[in-house]
Simulated scan of single mutants.
Amino acid sequence: MRKLFGCTLLIALVASAAGYGYWAEQREVGHYLSDLRIKLAVNDGADQGRGNLLGIEPDLSPRDFQSLALVHLKLSAYLNSARNDGLLNDKTIVILPEHIGTWLMFRGEKNELYQAANLNEAMRMLALSNPLAFANAWLRADGDNRTNDAHLRMKARHMASDYQSLFGGLAKEFGVTLVAGSIALPDPRIENGQLLPGNGPLYNSSLVFGHDGALLGAPQRQLLPTYEEQSYIQPSPDHQLNVVDTPAGRLGILIGSDSWYPENYKILNEKGAQLIAVPAFIMGKNTWEQPWGGYKSVSTPSEISLKPGEVTEGEAWHRLTLISSAPSSTAQAGMTVFLRGKFWDKRSAGRGFISRNGQTSADTSGTGAQLLNVWL
Rank of each mutant, 00 (worst) to 15 (best):
T312M: 04
S129D: 11
G6R: 15
S161C: 05
D149S: 15
R347W: 12
M159D: 05
S34Y: 01
L10G: 12
R107Q: 12
W103N: 11
A46Q: 13
S129C: 08
H72V: 04
S361G: 04
C7W: 15
L251H: 10
F65R: 00
T321C: 12
L322I: 03
D258M: 04
Q115P: 00
H158W: 11
R140S: 11
T364P: 00
P197T: 05
G30Q: 08
A127S: 14
I183G: 01
N111L: 08
D144M: 10
E28D: 11
L170Y: 08
L202N: 04
G210F: 00
T360K: 12
E173A: 13
I304C: 04
F343T: 02
L306S: 02
L241R: 09
A116C: 08
P201Y: 03
L178A: 07
G21H: 10
Q48Y: 03
K91I: 05
F353H: 08
N242T: 09
K296F: 02
L195G: 03
Y265V: 02
G30A: 10
D212W: 08
I267M: 13
P308Q: 08
W375E: 09
V42T: 07
N130W: 03
G86F: 11
T330W: 07
I95V: 15
R37S: 15
P301V: 11
W138R: 12
S302P: 10
Y203S: 01
L224T: 04
W260N: 02
P262W: 02
G217A: 07
G284E: 07
L33D: 14
P62I: 01
G252P: 01
E121M: 12
E228D: 14
L33S: 15
I93W: 03
Q230P: 04
Q290M: 14
R146A: 09
L223E: 05
K155L: 07
Q370S: 15
T336N: 11
A135C: 06
E289L: 12
E310M: 07
P301I: 10
L87M: 14
R63G: 04
Y203N: 04
E310Q: 15
V337L: 01
R319G: 01
D162Q: 04
I93A: 06
V243D: 01
F343V: 03
T102M: 11
G21Y: 11
G169V: 08
S16D: 08
L75N: 09
G175Y: 00
E109K: 13
T364Q: 12
